[in-house]
Design a protein around this nucleic acid. Structure first.
Lengths: 204, 204, 204, 204
DNA sequence: AATGAATGAGATTTCATTCAT
DNA sequence: CATGAATGAAATCTCATTCAT
């Protein structure tokens, strides 16, 4: 049983440092292009044009670095989500966000990584619960008074949290499978969700 | 630039060897218990009570070993799926299979790994396309004559391949999130799918 | 508080391997010539003309390596001590052993190292207690029936275990100080111990 | 071959600075609690609540810092020793000083470190010779007229410098072994020395 | 007086893999 | 079949120290 090391609280390198940003950017790009397993302090340093120990100056442990990348990305997502939910087509905006290639691909990488980076896993869990709550709130507002009954098997009566979960699962699967070159059923699934969106919008 | 290794002409352990099976079992257990990143020839050998070079005798490269584990598991899944599709409650049997903890967790690990193991990714793509085709065939048979129209936003008129995709995405997300301790929306999503199943079965 | 890692029980490299011996020898020489702080897998490998990972093949962790060196040396000392105690001048033989430059210097290095290598410290404690018991047994035999009374302040009536402790302390201090270039009082202390030895032998 | 660093002309913090004292205190505490190997500019800075470069501002090299700690401690010891030797029970006061846990433990750490810190070793040698001379002077005064003859094997006729050496060796060994959890012979050795003290005091 | 940034060197391991026996 | 021995490559991190500000 491995000991779980807490991410060090030691603060190093100002939040605003340009070098710090360069490191986060390089890590993010690496994860997207080569998968999270390609991320090491060495590879990040190389990609960023820095020496490896400098990466450790800013992020004492690799977990610190990955957490910083995740938080930056998740915070951006929170902001975008806020905007989307406040728009006049919140459902459509949410779906558009969920199927954003880059953002979702990054989120999927982090989920894959969570299995052996417990700190990352815990952080993801926190954020996902927040995302889901925000979305559910919007869904209540938009889908409104219709009688909710999960067991009806009718998407229009599915409870908000369930809907949020379904959308997340489908969008993540689309992105993940696409990266493997899988396309079977994708067009149909997308068409279905968009059909549903339209039907909700037109109130039919 | 990594060198691409040609299939070596080296002698390799027979498919039927008991030791070979021990290695596959150990790898599978390791992946499930500690995540795919915990798999190395060393760790597998340790878990199996063997020496590392012996693992290489049976599987020249780590990819060979992982591919063998994946194929064995995927072939078992194909068989189970065949059985499920031939049962008298094929839809329900399919959903039950999709939410099987162990099998799905393993599949998710392989998908996570696919990003930096291109051979694995290609193999997964091949199998997923087969799974989806088999399922679509069954869905056509069961849901049959209803007019299919993805853009209707009605689950009962969703094209089979799309349905298969949706179910896969949801079940994978349930398993993956559960392993992170996320539960928001899970009960609702499950209830929804099961409500839909019932409504299809009862023909309502 | 750092976790104390147990020395791995993984057995690697036959006890009899020549390379294994080369590594132990190199480590011992390094400790004697440059102090225990100079010992690293790298430096040992360099000194032994080997690659660093090979050292780890034989000794998975640095503690494993140091423990092996300590045990080999301590076991040799046990044997020598046995011989000394069985000789016809056991007291003199013991003192001669205690002031053996190389052996004692090595023991002193290990004691110094024990502070931050808890495994080493525990092993030393075990051996020292054994050494002291063996010596006490001999002292009882040789100094025999004289009434023992520690509080008399007379070396000839000091309890055996106390005598053993005193001799160990003095001999270690002589060696340690000599390595620092300190000589004040050394000749006198040595003369004193040897005078005592003679007086015991001649029974005066 | 290491380069010998010339005393740099760089500015250095004043002797009187409070920060300087904080650094020395932190180093001393670290050495006592975790052993000398735990001392690094980083760890000291951390313990003192300072940044590493500031430590270098006061002590250009690590050796400078360690030397300062040693000198401060040794000077305090000199003073205490002066007091002890001037007391009306100088022998007992000396023994009490020699077995002072903290002071002796620190001295032992420095001795252990001396092997690979040549500057420290040289400084220790200088101080030890002074200590021994001061003690010998006192011993001459107290034990006085008895005919000195090291070869007699009688503690009461042991030359002063030899006595000083013996006491130092025993007390250091007691402290060092106690820290390893060794206790065999300790009570007896202590009782013996104290018995001797009493017999000298009572003139028996 | 203090600190953020940076770096070369090194420590301790782990890994996949090869090869001779 | 099986294993002991060996190795190049890399991962993660620490250290002392410098320098500009």
């Amino acid at each position: 049983m491995k000991e779980i090391k807490l991410a060090s609280s030691r603060r190093v390198g100002a939040e605003s440092s340009a070098t710090r940003t360069v490191i986060l950017d390089a890590t993010e790009r690496l994860m997207l292009e080569e998968g999270y397993a390609a991320v090491s302090t060495r590879s990040v340093a190389g990609r960023a044009g820095l020496k490896a120990p400098l990466v450790h100056y800013y992020f004492p442990t690799t977990d610190d670095m990955l957490l910083a990348v995740y938080r930056r990305s998740a915070d951006q997502n929170l902001e975008r989500l806020s905007g989307a939910l406040a728009s006049d087509q919140p459902l459509r905006a949410l779906w558009s966000l969920s199927t954003d290639q880059t953002r979702t691909a990054l989120a999927v990488e982090f989920m894959a990584m969570a299995n052996h980076r417990k700190l990352i896993g815990a952080e993801i869990a926190r954020y996902v619960e927040r995302f889901r709550a925000m979305q559910a709130e919007m869904l209540v507002r938009v889908l409104g008074d219709g009688v909710v009954d999960a067991r009806a098997g009718d998407l229009k009566r599915c409870p908000p949290a369930g809907l949020s979960m379904l959308l997340a699962g489908v969008s993540r699967a689309l992105i993940m499978e696409a990266s493997l070159g899988i396309s079977a059923g994708h067009a149909e699934a997308i068409a279905f969700v968009e059909g549903w969106l339209r039907s909700v919008e037109t109130g039919v």
